[in-house]
Amino acid sequence: MTITAEVFDQCLQNEPRAQEALYQAYASRMYGLCLRYTGSRMEAEDILQEGFIKVFQHLTSVHSKEHLDGWICKIMINTALTHYTNQLKFKNDESINFDTFDTTISEDALSKLSYKELLRILQGIPAGYRTIFNLYVIDGFNHKEIGEILGIAESTSKSQLRKAKITMKKILTRIL
């Protein structure tokens, strides 16, 4: 998944064919990222589209082609977070009683799950939990960074992550 320096230069000049080449090179991976942050394919496609518009708008701020990969990822994550913050804030799912839940799951059972099923589980949890789970577990941000990104307290990030995991395990228990 890479583009040539020539394509990169042409993208800087808003050349449509080069823009399409860049899109085709990164679309699949970025769409996977968007799916993780959203609850539906439609939302993910909206974010993907919006994210790529930002990519093409601000491409001149990328110093070299080598930094493009991480930069596009960052743009997509930021777009997904903007999408999330525009839609809803950290609302607790009242239907889940975290206090009475047993979190023991067999690891052998987990191994039977496909990535599609795991993605559906992730998409099935509330958006606030999903966002923090994605940022912390998959994209590698720490709680302090998440707090700064989302404008929340570090402790909030921790508690939301914990609730996210409990919710996911509950769903997993039902499946397995």
Binding site: A27, S28, R29, Y31, G32, L35, R36, A44, E45, L48, L113, Y115, L118, L119, L122, I138
Partner: peptide, 9 residues
């Protein structure tokens, strides 16, 4: 499983 999974839009 899904960290770097690719899907076709």
């Amino acid at each position: 499983a899904i960290g770097r999974q690719e899907f076709s839009p």
